[in-house]
């Protein structure tokens, strides 16, 4: 179980008193998305961030990815300040963000290509991750030929094939149908168990967060502040949708997180 490793672990990402402001230069408006947030993401933990729409969840991810800089406070990885995007911080986007003119194989091999890995080597490695995502049959297909679920599995394979230190996922399963979503969540945990990596998972679904996470961070709505962190100590081998929904521990944790999310709305 991963939570056991957390107590003695070192933070992979450290966020200290971070305030994130969206500035719209054309309208000369600014909007505080996240305010005075302090949060650690531990090595190899699966951290979910939940909160209602507009609580700055995605903005938080943008700051760690390096798409934007904090107004005040700091965000560091392994003690070093994050200033720009980099291959050490992979992101899986809700809209897949696969390049439509490249095959699944070429998409998954993209990060390795940027690093100058020779074609044969990068394709061999990409095929491993494609197999892990159960997409071997679709390796030569283009994204538009795939279902939403397959596209997102390809996007996860692309991120993992690049062996980042943290994989960040921005509501990755929000655009797929409910049935596919459940199997993608289980698939993700299977892959994550085989490839331990630090995961930051952004979602507005409390059930999804409790099902996936070692810890769930609840944010308050705009500007986003940390409300509470809830430890999810459900054993990893119990994380299956066909049984977990009747697990009293799951129900209790889900209700508790739900109450935290709802409380601040009312």
């Amino acid at each position: 179980m991963n939570t056991a490793a957390l107590t003695g672990g070192t933070p992979k990402i450290s966020i200290r008193d971070m305030t994130l402001v969206h500035v719209n230069e054309e309208r000369r408006q600014s909007n505080v998305a996240v305010e005075n947030l302090t949060l650690d993401i531990m090595e190899n933990e699966f951290l979910c961030v939940v909160g209602p729409s507009g609580c700055g969840k995605s903005t938080l991810l943008s700051a760690i990815a390096g798409f934007m800089q904090p107004q005040t406070g700091t965000v560091t990885m392994n003690g070093e300040r994050i200033t720009k995007p980099g291959a050490d911080r992979g992101v899986v986007f809700q809209e897949y963000a696969l390049l439509p003119w490249k095959t699944v194989l070429d998409n998954v091999a993209l990060g390795l290509k940027f690093r100058g890995v020779p074609r044969a080597d990068r394709e061999a490695k990409a095929m491993e991750y494609i197999a892990m995502a159960r997409l071997t049959e679709a390796a030569k297909k283009y994204p538009h030929e795939l279902s939403g679920g397959m596209r997102q599995r390809a996007a996860v394979a692309r991120t993992l094939a690049n062996t980042p230190e943290i994989m960040m996922m921005d509501e990755p399963f929000a655009a797929v149908d409910a049935q596919t979503r459940l199997s993608l969540q289980e698939e993700l945990l299977r892959v994550w168990n085989d490839n331990p990596i630090t995961v930051l998972f952004i979602t507005h679904s409390v059930e999804e967060a409790v099902f996936l996470a070692d810890r769930v961070a609840v944010l308050t709505p705009g500007p986003g502040k940390l409300r509470e962190i809830v430890e999810i100590d459900i054993p990893r081998n119990a994380r299956h949708w066909d049984t977990i929904t009747s697990d009293p521990e799951f129900i209790a944790l889900r209700d508790r997180v739900m109450a935290l999310v709802r409380d601040q709305n009312g």
């Binding site: 798409f67 995007p85 980099g86 291959a87 992979g90 992101v91 963000a97 990060g111 940027f114 692309r158």
Partner: peptide, 11 residues
Amino acid sequence: VLINAVRTLGA
């Protein structure tokens, strides 16, 4: 998002 995606892949 496509530009952001390749930047996070190290482009």
